[in-house]
């Protein structure tokens, strides 16, 4: 796959931290589509559209997507079957 729009998910760690309240880039997710488990930071991020889309690095299906408006963030995380987050 050769796509210049694809960035590492670390580039969107700020939005994620705002939504989850802490840095989740090292947290583990499971892809609903293919079952791959890995750190959120391994997801492929498409950030140049009207919103942000994170895709599975194995099957390329959408794991999470969100839109930031001046007053809200709309999050669709149905592509993440679960997430595992460490407590500090």
């Amino acid at each position: 796959m050769d796509d210049p729009l694809m960035l590492d998910a670390n580039a969107v760690a700020g939005d994620l931290a705002e939504m989850f309240g802490f840095d989740v880039s090292g947290s583990v997710h499971r892809c609903t589509n293919c079952g791959n488990q890995g750190a959120v930071a391994t997801l492929l991020a498409y950030v140049h559209g009207p919103g942000t889309v994170l895709r599975c690095c194995i099957c390329h299906e959408i794991v999470m997507r969100w839109v930031r408006t001046p007053t809200r963030i709309y999050l669709d995380a149905r592509g993440a079957a679960y997430m595992e987050m460490g407590l500090s």
Binding site: Y46, P50, V53
Partner: peptide
């Protein structure tokens, strides 16, 4: 002509 995309081409 900016390119915007939500996924691979």
């Amino acid at each position: 002509f900016p390119v915007l995309s939500a996924g691979p081409t």
